[in-house]
């Protein structure tokens, strides 16, 4: 019954009315973001904000409980030599590892995100995907990262993709839902824009670029298009949606460029971990090394930081 209620309140928008993306314009705009110079105190603030927005991620077939515990430990103790560091926003793991992360993070205000819905390909039936989602939620995940069915989307079956997101959102209950578009498989910025609109109208709390398993993963171009879609969605509906670029953002410098883009596209309201996340496994250490460089004046070595 609940499913029907949700379904009736959400309408698949007319995607033919989604505006086309000016690719040249996007490239030029992105190039401009990369010319901003953020230095000294502003840089330190930006780096700390980046740390607080990180979803520390391990999504490998070889993940073990030990590896997940180690990552949770890192999430809590990023680098104790530096005082006043924020903790990361969340750890991101496979559903079977959620209970391990939950134990390891007990007593700490760090979210547990779990990928679900036959991540990363999404090639399974709806019932399996819903079970996958419920398993992660029951194990204690506070955020679910789902993948859309790219094959269905590319073949034009938007209704299927829409209904699937609606159903997964329903299975999530109060848990935050991030919808992964896997932009590297969508091919064009127009399709990225269309998929973003579809996901937001279907009830996504966040839209996310990539699984990290497909190249290219997050790019500034793709992220800008998604941010613009969020901006328009907010104007039309009054509802804020979060953004999570994931995969390929491994340097502090690049992450700062993303913050500049966020600030200049969506404004200050989105400049918090509640509305913006970085999905990354190696970004944290580079940010920490930059912060250490700012405080000591000396270029740092990965040898003196905990492993990613």
């Amino acid at each position: 019954m609940a499913l029907n209620a949700v379904k009736t309140s959400l309408q698949l928008p007319d995607l033919s009315r989604v505006p086309a993306v000016d690719e040249v314009g996007v490239n030029e705009r992105v190039a401009r973001f990369q010319t901003r110079s953020i230095k000294t105190a502003s840089k330190v603030e930006a780096l700390k904000l980046i740390l607080s927005m990180i979803d520390l991620t391990t999504l490998e077939g070889q993940d073990t409980p030990g590896k997940v515990r180690q990552m949770c430990q890192k999430a809590i103790h990023l680098h104790d030599a530096l005082p006043d560091l924020p903790h990361v926003a969340a750890v991101c793991v496979y559903p079977t590892m959620v209970h391990v992360a939950k134990d390891a993070l007990k007593g700490h205000n760090i979210n547990i995100a779990s990928v679900a819905t036959a991540f990363p390909s999404g090639m399974s039936t709806l019932s399996v995907k819903l079970d996958d989602t419920r398993m992660a939620v029951d194990a204690g995940a506070t955020e679910i990262d789902m993948v859309i069915s790219r094959g269905k989307f590319l073949s034009g079956d938007y209704r299927y993709v829409f209904d699937e997101i609606v159903a997964v959102k329903e299975a999530c209950g109060d848990v935050h839902l991030k919808v992964i578009l896997e932009t590297g498989e969508l091919g064009t910025l127009d399709r990225v824009r269309r998929a973003s609109v579809l996901a937001m109208y279907a009830g996504a709390d966040f839209i996310k670029t990539s699984t990290g398993k497909i190249q290219p993963a997050a790019t500034m171009q793709v992220t800008l298009v998604m941010l613009q879609a969020i901006s328009d969605f907010y104007r039309e509906t009054g509802k804020m949606v979060g953004m999570k670029p994931a995969g390929g953002i491994s340097t502090a410098k690049l992450a700062v460029h993303y913050l500049v883009m966020l600030r200049e596209t969506l404004g200050n309201a989105w400049m918090t971990p509640e509305w913006f996340r970085f999905g990354a496994s190696t970004l944290a250490n580079d940010v920490l090394m930059q912060l250490m460089k700012q405080s000591t004046g000396v270029y740092q070595s990965a040898d003196y930081f905990s492993k990613d």
Binding site: V298, Y299, Q300, S301, A302
Partner: peptide
Amino acid sequence: SQFASHMD
């Protein structure tokens, strides 16, 4: 000084 101080 850069050559001498770099931690890596």
